[in-house]
Simulated assay, not measured.
Amino acid sequence: MQLSENAKKYLLEASKWANFIAIFGFIIIGLLVIMSFSISSIMAGLPEGSLGGLSPRFFSFFYLIAAGIYFIPVFFLFQFGQKTRQAILEDDHNLLAFGLKKLKSHYKFIGILFIVFTVFYLFLILFGAFGALFLG
């Protein structure tokens, strides 16, 4: 399979945007990690019971977990951008295949995450509806 000049141009532009989004994503991950270390001290000053019985450590743990989950697709996107750009510039089909594999991994992870959160929210809605029926 040969790539036309337009296809190469589109892939090169896509790789630049992927790198931009990934670098911005890494910055957000860094902010989430910083927030995870500072949120417990910020929330420790709140009045007792204002957190609904949750410990400030829970929120620190939550931010660290969110950063970890967010890291995976951002890293895949970064790899796609780097390897695809390198493949186009060096005319290397193996690097292009690797870059496209990472793009597939990025979308697969996002798709699985979408399914997990959709099911989670459906359970919350059902739980809330049954709670309103039987407790309200």
Rank of each mutant, 00 (worst) to 15 (best):
L11I: 08
L11H: 06
L12Q: 10
S15T: 00
K16Q: 09
W17V: 09
N19I: 13
F26G: 04
F26W: 06
I27V: 14
I27R: 05
I28V: 10
I29V: 10
G30T: 04
L31W: 08
V33W: 07
V33L: 12
I34L: 15
M35I: 13
M35G: 15
S36L: 02
S38Y: 15
S38R: 10
M43S: 09
M43G: 05
G45K: 07
L46I: 13
L46M: 15
G49H: 14
S50R: 08
L51I: 06
L51P: 02
S55G: 14
S55F: 15
P56M: 11
F59V: 00
F62D: 00
F62Y: 06
Y63P: 03
Y63F: 14
L64Q: 13
L64P: 08
I65R: 00
A66K: 05
I69K: 02
I69W: 01
I72A: 07
P73R: 11
Q79I: 13
T84E: 04
A87K: 03
I88W: 01
L89K: 15
E90R: 14
E90G: 09
D92Y: 14
L96C: 07
F98I: 10
G99E: 05
K101D: 13
K102A: 01
L103S: 01
L103R: 00
S105P: 09
H106F: 14
H106A: 08
H106S: 05
L113R: 00
I115T: 11
I115E: 06
V116H: 11
F117K: 00
T118F: 15
Y121F: 10
L122I: 10
F123G: 03
L124T: 10
L126M: 05
G131E: 06
A132Y: 15
L133H: 13
